[in-house]
């Protein structure tokens, strides 16, 4: 068909006669695919591009639609320099990174063994399902429920305004997510390997650590990364708990709407700084993450 098409102009009637509807349909599908892809790509990417533009535009051009650097406006890096020079911003990024890394590590450390337990052991007749449901139900609880008591409790325990408190909160509230992903991962592993090791006299812990864990390593990494991104983006508990030393970047960004309004070039620059980390994660580990998200969804 292709050669025929390139040889001379193809009359639609001719194509239809030759191949009842098929080629026309294929071409139509192809065009539709290209058009939809283009729309989707623009739809997804434009906000990022816009943030980037805002960060290199002079404040006067923040509003209105100047799209093309050099042609419509002179790009400049002074917003980036200004933002980077703010001590609190660097501190905030560091705090966010600590919360992300700490939260992710905490959640995986507690979540993976629990997932293993649910996948491999039997807890009564309905126990396993009940456990899965329970973890899932933890995930549905809106954080706002916990905010009032957690503020008071953190104060009582002297954890107010500590990064530790934010790490604990971010980590804990993401354990269910890890459990749900990882229990599915463990179930998908053939159990025979572990059973033969058991016959050889290995302890449960050794089996877990030496055999099961290495096999699901990609899953562990995926869930670790996803939780890292979630914790990195967390703002709600930060607003409640942090007040001076433990202010993460997200909370600093919320504050950009100060007494004299939002500094949009700075906000866009900080937004890009914030988005950079999850973006790098998403770009480098895309396969893991899609799989992780799917599992989280599929097995709920």
């Amino acid at each position: 068909m292709v050669s025929a098409a390139s040889a001379r102009p193809v009359h639609p009637e001719y194509v239809r006669a030759q191949n009842p509807g098929k080629t026309a349909r294929k071409i139509a599908t192809r065009i539709a695919l290209i058009v939809v892809s283009a729309i989707v790509i623009v739809w997804i990417a434009f906000p990022f591009y816009w943030a980037f533009l805002n960060s290199i535009k002079p404040a006067v051009d923040t509003f209105g639609s100047k799209w093309i650097p050099w042609v419509q406006f002179e790009p400049r890096l002074d917003t980036w320099q200004r933002v980077w020079s703010i001590r609190e911003v660097r501190q905030g990024l560091l705090t966010s990174a600590t919360i992300g890394l700490g939260g992710a590590t905490l959640a995986t450390a507690f979540g993976v063994p629990a997932a293993y337990a649910i996948a491999r052991f039997r807890f009564g007749t309905k126990g396993n399902m009940a456990m899965t449901n329970w973890f899932l139900s933890q995930r549905i609880m809106p954080p706002v429920i916990f905010a009032p008591p957690i503020f008071i409790l953190a104060r009582t325990l002297g954890l107010l305004d500590t990064v530790l408190a934010l790490v604990l909160l971010a980590g804990t509230f993401n354990i269910p997510f890890v459990v749900l992903i990882m229990s599915q991962m463990f179930r998908d592993l053939p159990v025979e390997l572990e059973e033969s090791a058991q016959v050889d006299g290995a302890s449960r812990w050794e089996i877990f650590r030496r055999i099961a864990l290495p096999l699901v390593a990609p899953g562990v990494v995926a869930s670790w990364l996803i939780v890292l991104a979630f914790s990195w983006n967390e703002v709600f508990f930060a607003l409640v708990v942090a007040s001076k030393d433990a202010i993460p970047m997200t909370m600093y960004i919320v504050g950009l709407s100060g007494t004299r309004g939002v500094d949009f070039p700075a906000a866009s620059t900080m937004a890009l700084l914030m988005i950079a980390v999850p973006t790098i994660i998403a770009l480098t580990c895309q396969r893991f993450i899609v799989r992780g998200l799917s599992l989280g969804a599929v097995k709920g």
Binding site: R82, V89, T259, R260
Partner: peptide
């Protein structure tokens, strides 16, 4: 001395 201010955007921030 710790001063509490509305976030204004750092060194060029209003009030801050």
């Amino acid at each position: 001395v710790t001063v509490l201010v509305n976030t204004g955007g750092g060194e060029k921030g209003s009030i801050e």
